[in-house]
Write a protein that binds this DNA or RNA. Structure first.
Length: 576
DNA sequence: GCCGTTTTCGGCCCGACTGTTTTCAGTCG
């Protein structure tokens, strides 16, 4: 059972405890542990075997009780508490928690009073007006439940960041046109650049909130108005929930902090406030009745004795402790990027020529681009044979000569995304690998190999003196393909010992390495290449921001990323 | 269930909106 599975166990325990109306703080404890565990870089099983309960308890949010359960799961693959709780509730009941506007109290009531056990039964009961007769229920509740079920079915799951961001930006553009909108900003998980987004949060400063709300609920493409109040409204727009909040200018900082989250980060900050005798809410920082801050986000942090924490770090993953000790890293920025080490051209499955890719890179202000066309094994992507590699080399040389003669300070690097085959060998002989400026190794087949085999496969590639970078090291495709099984700690060790760079693939459905793995790489002293894997000239500039954002979420500074260096320095960090 | 330069026990973040209530419970973030 991997970390993610354990997190699910604790989430499900929390779900069931909610239905049973147990102590809300106990529920929160399970949730917090689940959130920490699912993003933990180290393998819990390994920690459990090595250090037992005392080692597990060092994980924030994990105490005696949960540590023992982790140990139990690691040893037996099963958790008795979890199993016992599951026997107390019908299987379909937990699914109901995922329906918007339906919470544990509602579920408990419909279950206890009229025996509802599933989404289908709830829908049937609402349609036949069995719910409105229940105490505290009415026609509206029934309607909302039906709407909620519809929404749940239509939009199960979260949206990709790259899908939500343009949508949010267009809403901002629309609302900005209003005179009554003084300031407008995106908040929520979008501002934290999470890889998937549950809903869009937008914050507006205005003295005429009613007019803002009016415009908001009349936006193009609106499908439903979930709530409309004086300062807060929620709509469904093209399948995404959008929340809008209007505040006074004096509250903007506090509100931005509050609505950016994460929830657990906010709880930590407010707890610090309470200890200092302060109350922190979306309107400001208060000592008693007196407002002592809140116009700027910095106020919030300063008043609880913390350095400013960038939104990407606000996940309660140690950023509060770091801010206390002034250890917040100076995160890498888009402008730091000086080149792209993984793009494709029409020599394999890319759309544009080498020259067009180079021109695009130059227009981004880059100093280099590595054209990393596929090796033969990826036949479907038009992988190059050895002959093509050599012919391509001529074209690259010609182009570089031209740049030199024209006084353009730019270089095209001959590279290839070379398959790491299932027998651990590379898809080109060493002589070809040696002739390339940059070799990017990648797994594209046999994703189902077991953990040990897959780990060895990549380790063998990293031990090859010509393999500079490992592309998309876990192989995941968000919403489509789970990451393959691999021992990431071992990969990091070998990467460090062999001087192999790990790629952070910027494609928004990959983001691979992810934020947690980036941080892990940094802990091991492994360098990262933020690459785009662009298959056409516009993609290169379009998706790099997602990679940089993920690197920031992984606490990376410019110095940790090889392609923030100039050409010579960057090449010096690669092998050979 | 977690956690502690205020505590090893007694706390645990805070407010808007809705619907059904006539003072509040439930949900959400």
């Amino acid at each position: 059972m991997i970390n993610l599975d354990m997190a699910r166990v604790f989430d499900e325990i929390a779900d069931i405890l909610e239905l049973k109306a147990e102590n809300p703080f106990k529920i929160r404890a399970y949730r917090r542990a689940a959130r920490t565990i699912e993003t933990l870089a180290q393998d819990l099983k390994v920690i459990a075997e090595r250090g037992g309960v005392s080692e597990l308890k060092k994980i924030p949010g994990v105490g005696e009780g949960i540590a023992k359960k982790i140990l139990e799961i690691a040893k037996t693959g099963d958790c008795k508490t979890h199993r016992a709780l599951k026997e107390e509730v019908p299987a379909g009941l937990l699914e109901l928690l995922a329906i918007p506007r339906v919470g544990p109290k509602t579920i408990a009531k419909v279950h206890d009073e009229i025996g509802i056990n599933s989404v289908e039964q709830l829908e049937e009961a609402a349609k036949s007006h069995k719910l409105e007769k229940l105490p505290g229920f009415g026609v509206k509740v029934e309607e909302n439940i039906l709407k909620g079920i519809e929404q749940y079915r239509r939009y199960k799951g979260r949206k990709l960041l790259s899908e939500a961001l343009p949508r949010a930006e267009s809403i901002v553009t629309e609302l900005k046109k209003l005179d009554v909108v003084e300031r407008i900003t995106i908040a929520g998980s979008l501002r934290r650049w999470r890889e998937t987004i549950g809903d869009i949060d937008i914050l507006v400063v205005s003295r005429r909130p009613k007019e803002v709300m009016d415009a908001f609920i009349h936006l193009d493409g609106i499908e439903d108005i979930v709530a409309k109040g004086d300062t807060k409204s929620s709509i469904v727009l093209k399948g995404i929930d959008v929340d809008l909040r209007v505040v006074d200018a004096v509250s903007l900082g506090a509100a931005a902090h509050y609505f950016t989250g994460s929830k657990h980060h906010n709880i930590r900050i407010r707890e610090l406030g309470v200890r200092k005798g302060l109350k922190i809410n979306e309107y400001g920082v208060f000592r008693g009745e007196e407002r002592i801050g809140g116009e700027n986000e910095e106020d919030v942090f300063k008043n609880v004795g913390l350095a400013y924490i960038p939104p990407e770090l606000r996940e309660d993953r140690g950023e509060v402790e770091a801010a206390k000790e002034n250890r917040i890293p100076k995160l890498v920025e888009p402008n730091d990027i000086k080149g792209d080490l993984h793009v494709h051209t029409n020599w394999s499955d890319g759309k544009n020529s080498i020259e067009e890719m180079a021109e695009a890179a130059i227009s981004l202000g880059y100093e280099y681009v590595a054209v990393a066309d596929h090796s033969p094994a990826v036949g479907i992507a038009g992988g190059m044979n050895e002959d093509k590699v050599k012919k391509r080399e001529k074209e690259i040389e010609g182009l570089n000569t031209r740049f030199k003669n024209e006084g353009v300070d730019f270089r095209v690097l001959a590279a290839s995304e070379v398959d790491i085959k299932s027998d651990c060998s590379m898809d080109f002989p060493d002589a070809i690998l040696k002739s390339l400026d940059v070799v990017v190794g990648a797994v594209h087949s046999k994703f189902s190999q077991d953990r040990a085999t897959m780990t060895q496969r990549i380790v063998t590639a990293m031990e090859n003196e010509h393999v500079d970078i490992i592309a998309h090291p876990t192989g995941r495709v968000l919403g489509k393909r789970e990451p393959y099984e691999v021992d990431m700690e071992r990969l990091m060790e070998v990467a460090r010992d062999t001087g192999t760079v790990m790629e952070l693939n910027s494609f928004p459905n990959r983001l691979d390495l992810n934020d947690v793995h980036c941080r892990m790489a940094n802990d091991y002293g492994v360098h990262i290449a933020i690459s785009t894997d662009a298959h056409d000239a516009t993609q290169m500039g379009a998706v790099i921001k997602y990679g940089v954002a993920t690197a920031r979420r992984g606490w990376l500074e410019a110095k940790d990323v090889v392609n923030t260096r100039g050409l010579e320095e960057m090449l010096g960090l690669l092998k050979g």
